[in-house]
Amino acid sequence: MKKIGLLLLILTFITACGSKKSATTKTASIKKAKNKNYKHKLKDAYTFLITEIATDKTYGYTPENAVEVGGASDREGPANERRYLNALSGPNGEEVSYFRAGSCCAVPSENAMFGDHVLLDNYRVTWEGSKDTVSIYINMYDSSKLKAPVGFKLR
């Protein structure tokens, strides 16, 4: 019985320590995700100060080019998502309304709390007179310079 227990212990050790591929894959994924720890400025307690509109038509509209508001490590992630959305206005300056549709889309991040990927939040945004809602993907784990997506203006 002792031999079987010892054999199981050895097999467990070999299996747990023998995974070079996953460590290499994790390192490669994190290298792809640049160091993203940009410090944002606030307009007020509920709104980020944003001064630029994106020229890239995918900014915010695709998981691969999500808006990076940061703050998760300081328990400010959801508040930062709202601060970002509060800084936007519709194409003619209309006040926007939004709701969180849920989480999706694992993306590599060196700021992941577990593993090497984080989930994005998907917000549905609309304004008076719009024909439909718009999906905006937001990353609360990484932060980079904020811009308004194409089609939006700034408050």
Rank of each mutant, 00 (worst) to 15 (best):
M1V: 14
K3P: 05
K3L: 15
I4L: 14
I4F: 08
L6V: 12
L6A: 14
L7K: 09
I10C: 13
L11T: 10
T12H: 06
T15S: 14
T15E: 09
A16S: 14
C17L: 10
G18C: 11
K21R: 12
S22M: 11
T27I: 13
I30G: 00
I30D: 04
I30Y: 02
K32F: 08
K32N: 10
A33M: 01
K39L: 09
K41A: 15
K41I: 09
K43V: 03
K43I: 03
D44R: 10
D44E: 09
A45W: 03
Y46L: 12
T47L: 04
F48E: 05
F48G: 03
T51G: 11
E52N: 13
I53C: 01
I53P: 02
D56H: 09
K57P: 06
K57Q: 12
T58F: 07
Y59W: 12
G60W: 10
G60S: 10
G60Y: 10
T62F: 05
P63W: 05
N65I: 01
N65Q: 06
A66N: 00
G70S: 04
A72N: 08
D74F: 08
R75I: 00
E76T: 07
E76Y: 06
G77F: 00
N80E: 02
E81A: 15
E81K: 10
R83L: 05
Y84G: 01
Y84E: 02
L85A: 05
N86C: 07
G90S: 04
E94I: 06
E95V: 12
E95G: 03
S97Y: 11
S97E: 11
S97Q: 13
Y98R: 00
F99Y: 14
F99I: 08
R100W: 02
C104Y: 06
C104W: 04
S109F: 04
E110H: 07
A112N: 05
M113L: 09
M113H: 08
D116V: 03
H117I: 06
L119G: 05
L120T: 02
L120W: 05
Y123A: 05
R124C: 02
W127E: 04
W127V: 03
E128T: 08
D132E: 15
D132S: 15
T133V: 11
S135N: 15
Y137K: 04
I138R: 03
D142M: 07
D142C: 06
S143T: 01
S143P: 02
S144D: 15
K145S: 11
L146H: 09
P149L: 08
V150N: 04
K153C: 05
K153W: 01
